[in-house]
Simulated scan of single mutants.
Amino acid sequence: MIALSVNLNKIALIRNSRDTVIPSVPEHARMCIEAGADGITVHPRPDQRHIRADDCRDLAAMLNVEFNIEGNPFAGPRVSDRKGVNDYPGFMELVRELRPTQCTLVPDGDAQLTSDHGFDLSRQAEELRPILAELRELGIRSSLFMDPSPEQMSLAAEIGADRIELYTETFAMAVAQGDGVAQSYERFRDTAEAAREAGLGINAGHDLTLHNLPYFRELPGLMEVSIGHALTVDALRMGMPAAVAAYLAVLAGR
């Protein structure tokens, strides 16, 4: 069974649009878990535009499912300039403090609206190696956010990654446009097969929806999908528990 980890960034984004505590991130995590979600994902950025460091602390204190924290391992501390928002301690400092089940490393920056590319290990392998070693020492499963690049999978394993998370926007765009779907899927399939040969686990995420997930769920070795934006949009229409149930049904092939 492919695990569903629900990304709660958009719940926090709605809350942050007002000076309020609603919608509650922990309460929505509870709803997701009660509906059957296998995990909760958050991506705290240094500017704390959506999920904040304190949200991560609140979730770590209450979750009884897998907790996945995503972010740039090179993001340092930052002083908050917003009333009532505590400072950002730095990504790795937050991970060391909270010890999530999984840490997904993503090469993003403030200028990006959302994550839009994976690591290029031909350039970044050696700077990631000690970080992956530290995560293993802390007992945290590591995952590298990667484009569908079969040639990079053996290097991801060699530097110590446990899993890769495939950045799936190109597949989602092909499905939405109705063009090049088979070719896009083939590239992801080849990458998944290379990852499995290298001994890596396979996660996936970004723009996966109820529409494109039935196709993508057939990817060989797929262990987990992290879905936030589309699931939150569906939840506005059908409610969070029903949205989670709908994604779980698709992942189960129902």
Rank of each mutant, 00 (worst) to 15 (best):
P23W: 15
P89A: 13
A125T: 05
L208G: 04
P148R: 10
E165S: 10
T170D: 14
L213W: 02
A195S: 10
A157G: 14
M173C: 09
A242C: 03
L231E: 00
V106I: 08
A75G: 09
F119I: 10
A172Y: 00
Q112H: 13
L138I: 04
T170F: 06
L13K: 12
I11P: 03
T20C: 11
A35N: 02
A133R: 13
R45F: 00
A133K: 15
N68T: 11
E165W: 01
E224C: 14
A249H: 07
L132D: 04
A3F: 09
V65S: 09
D110V: 14
N64P: 01
G228F: 00
E127F: 04
M1F: 01
R99C: 01
E169I: 06
A243H: 04
D147S: 05
A75D: 15
L121P: 04
G71I: 01
G201M: 07
L98R: 03
L128S: 08
D19S: 12
M31S: 13
G221N: 06
Q112F: 14
H229M: 02
E186W: 01
A125R: 03
F171H: 03
I22W: 15
D87F: 08
R18D: 10
T20K: 13
S17C: 09
A176D: 08
M223D: 15
F91P: 12
L63G: 11
G180Y: 07
E70H: 14
H28P: 01
V85A: 05
Q152D: 08
A156L: 08
M62G: 09
F216P: 00
